[in-house]
Design a protein around this nucleic acid. Sequence first.
RNA 1: UGGGGCGUCGUCAAGUGGUAAGACACAGGACUUUGAUUCCUGCAUUCGGAGGUUCGAACCCUCCCGCCCCAGCCA
Length: 560
Amino acid sequence: MTQDTTSNPTDFIRDIIDDDLKTNKNNGKVATRFPPEPNGYIHIGHAKSVCLNFGIARQYQGTCNLRLDDTDPAGESMEFVESIIHDIRWLGFDWEDRLFYASDYFEKIYQFAIELIKSGNAYVCSLSPDEIRELRGTFTEPGKDSPYRNRTIEENLDLFGRMRAGEFADGAHVLRAKIDMAAPNIVMRDPIIYRIKREPHYRTGTKWVIYPMYDFAHCLSDALEGITYSICTLEFENNRPLYDWIVERLITGLRPRQIEFARLNLSYTVLSKRRLIELVQEGHVKGWDDPRMPTVTGLRRRGYTPEAIRNFCAQIGVAKNDNLIDVALLEHCIREDLNEHAPRAMCVLHPLRVVIDNYPENQVEQFECANHPQNPEMGTRKIPFSKVLYIEQDDFMENPPKKYHRLGPGREVRLRNSYVIKFESMVKDDRTGNVLELHCTYDPDTLNGPPADGRKVQGVIHWVSAQHGIPAEIRLYDRLFSIEDPGSEENFVKYLNPNSLEILTTCYVEQNLKNAEPGNQYQFERLGYFCVDAKDTAAGKPVFNRVVQLRDSWAKIAKN
RNA sequence: UGGGGCGUCGUCAAGUGGUAAGACACAGGACUUUGAUUCCUGCAUUCGGAGGUUCGAACCCUCCCGCCCCAGCCA
């Protein structure tokens, strides 16, 4: 169904905001942020969060900042920052001048740490990583205090300053919040808030050798930016008490509130950064923008539109239930968009030569065809017809089953936008028995209507004039995995769909598509939606990616 | 089982004490020069289970069951 764009979505987060607005909690202010770490490309799960955060800002006339959460230099890079910026813009969102980096707050965050030490709420711990883990306890046993827990403020200040100055080796000391080693929530057992890490940062270079941990940096970054709603995914629910603990101690006035929602899971693909990286690095796909990837860049290259992705995000809703969204919904959303906007064209994937015996040898007719069957405003184009054509191999059967409406011995069929033709004979390969060529005759009176004698012609098939068609490479994509929830399998690579990509090199598209614009989508009638590949298309030599197939009720009938 | 969270149609998801929205999927049918689109129709006497409160419960209470998250100097 088409979304009513005048009505805003509703969900538990918006309910909270509505309540806050009623009580004027933040003086009517609504400020969100989207905080990706620049260590990978964003995917459709991020898109859900982008739509949520930017969508809320738009709906309530508030703001949404883009903040790169770059507190761990390992793996972070400008390449990822740029891709993230590009992808979010492409999705249709704007942060104006509010592009921020957690790394820009390093000095301020450091000062906050000093403040925490001074108030007796943090200490430098000199245990080894193993020892810290040891003393942390388990789910059922409380932890034990670090022997360094009661260092004096002066000593802590001195040590922390020297940590920053680079006097110690990586891992020699950490700064910890002094909370409660017996807390039932493990997050609260004196969490580490600063570590020494001699790793050059893509933005701050070697200026810092200590970096704040997520729990410390994130809430303070939110506060620094005046965020009112810090929306994140469910796995951070355990961290919320720490978020509040820090903010309560260091921030006066407006304090941001963390709200968690369930992250997106999509069937037949994986959405965790770790797994996506593995797919790329181990060469299971051809890169982050492989059209089979659920990344925004992959979806874009596949031919998905921002509208379809936004609509998908609106349809799935926002809640706290773990979910596994049927990829059929995503496919529905792109079909819905492309059905309305993509111009139609004809293309033969698996060509079968057809000679129209009663058509003059050198004649060529140009048929004026609608670019869209329901929308005349999309105009028309000319398609050449001649004696020799290509049709789809599937559209001819020597021994057709019942209900098959296409071509076969003794049968007639309508050529889309053209004449009705009748089967006359076929030429077979002597050795293999394969049908090499069909001979048909056409009925010249059927161009603009059904046969005058009332004959019923049920089938309509697509075609391309052999001498006019443009050879094209067409890539047929299918789901990347063969099981619904590969993300739940430890050895998920085992379930890759071996047929997720089929490359066809003997296809013919109508000549109008010879110089089709990279990135543009078309509906190849009766086949599906296709997108001109933006990377591998060369002048006059188009490469198409299949976005999604058309719904195919024949396929269902044929199965039975 | 120490803490946190979640259980409403195959998949999502509304519903917040007044008698189960919607979407996708699926199944029929109409129309059709795309077996597409569009259009009709059907699709939870029941809300994880069992008790209880109430005139009335998916919504309140009790107990039970199941699933997810947390023991990175990742985010």
